[in-house]
Each structure stands twice: as structure tokens, then as C-alpha cells.
């Protein structure tokens, strides 16, 4: 039912439901906010997480908004607890996007983290200051081209081998 409504309301939306309780929606970059507010008005009022995946081969970053209803009773006609994965892709070079704090205040730290870890700039976000890390990095560290081991070797010296191996 939700599926039909989504299909009629939005263009360019692809809907997949391959796993139990899990509705995967993909939409172009500019459609996210309207889908989010549509879903929120429908009663899907719980934003679990905003995640980001670096599809380095496609030269794209994928933003994933996961939301559901706190209580399925809040959503008319809903029979099963549905987790909605709302996805969009943005360019990997100089990625910019808009913040969703106005709709979901819970998004604040998630966007901050994605900014720090993937380098996505969320326009309108009040404080895109570093959240978890203390150093500056050339490449945002959660991107696929950030080589953790290389970084450790460069910054902290080489990882010691198991002792005894060197002694030979």
C-alpha cells in the first residue's frame, strides 16, 4: 500500500522489498527531503540512522536514511514493522548535500559524523565540527581509498611483527 502511494507520489523512485521487514527506496538526489517529510507525515517518525557508503568504483557516495515508525499502530493500515532504507547517491568529488535536521533533530550527530568520516558537506547544518577524531586527514578516513594500515605506518611507525620473527 505504501509502495503504491510512493510510486504515484514520486517520480524516479525505485522500490525493492527483498528481505523481510525491509523496504529499500532509491531516489535521485533532490527527492530525499520530500520523501522524508512524506514518510514522516505518514507516521514513520523514527529516524534510526543516517549512514553513508563509499561506492568508490562508481565514484559515488550513497547516503542511506533508515527510518521506521515508533509504533506500527501510529501508521494507519500498517501490519508489520517496516524498516525503510531511503537511499540516494551523490558525487564523490566535493560532495554536498542538505541537512535534514529540520525534519529530524536526531540527524544532527549522524550528519556531523558523515561530514567527518566521508567529507560530505551538509548545507544548513549548524556545527559541522569534528565529532570523533582528533587529527586532520587528507582523505576522510572512512572512504575506501583511505588506507588504514598505510596511515598507521606513516604516523606511528611500522606495526611490529610477532617477536621472534625478526630475530632470524
Amino acid at each position: 500500500m505504501l509502495k503504491q502511494e510512493l510510486e504515484t507520489t514520486f517520480d524516479n523512485i525505485t522500490i525493492r522489498m527483498e528481505k523481510k521487514n525491509q523496504l529499500e527506496l532509491s531516489i535521485t538526489k533532490d527527492g530525499i527531503m520530500s520523501v522524508l517529510s512524506f514518510l514522516k507525515n505518514k507516521g514513520y517518525d523514527h529516524l534510526h540512522v543516517i549512514s553513508c557508503v563509499d561506492w568508490i568504483d562508481d565514484k559515488q557516495l550513497e547516503l542511506v536514511y533508515i527510518l521506521s515508525a515508533y509504533m506500527k499502530q501510529d501508521v494507519p493500515g500498517e501490519t508489520e514493522q517496516l524498516n525503510i532504507l531511503l537511499k540516494t547517491r551523490i558525487g564523490r568529488d566535493d560532495p554536498k548535500y542538505i541537512t535534514s535536521i529540520a525534519l529530524f533533530p536526531a540527524a544532527e550527530p549522524y550528519e556531523r559524523e558523515i561530514h567527518e568520516m566521508f567529507g560530505v558537506d551538509f548545507l544548513g547544518h549548524p556545527r559541522l565540527t569534528p565529532l570523533l577524531l582528533e587529527r586532520d586527514y587528507d582523505i576522510p578516513p572512512f572512504r575506501k581509498d583511505f588506507d588504514t594500515k598505510q596511515y598507521v605506518d606513516d604516523v606511528f611507525g611500522s606495526v611490529p611483527s610477532v617477536e621472534g620473527e625478526d630475530k632470524n
Binding site: L132, L133, P141, F142, T148
Partner: peptide
């Protein structure tokens, strides 16, 4: 936060 950041999610990818 961040004093206990160990980068588990990144480690898991490897």
C-alpha cells in the same frame, strides 16, 4: 565523544 574511537566499522571492512 571520540576518546574511545577505535574505528571498528572501518576495521570490519578489512
Amino acid at each position: 565523544p571520540g576518546y574511545l574511537h577505535r574505528g571498528f566499522e572501518k576495521l570490519m571492512e578489512k
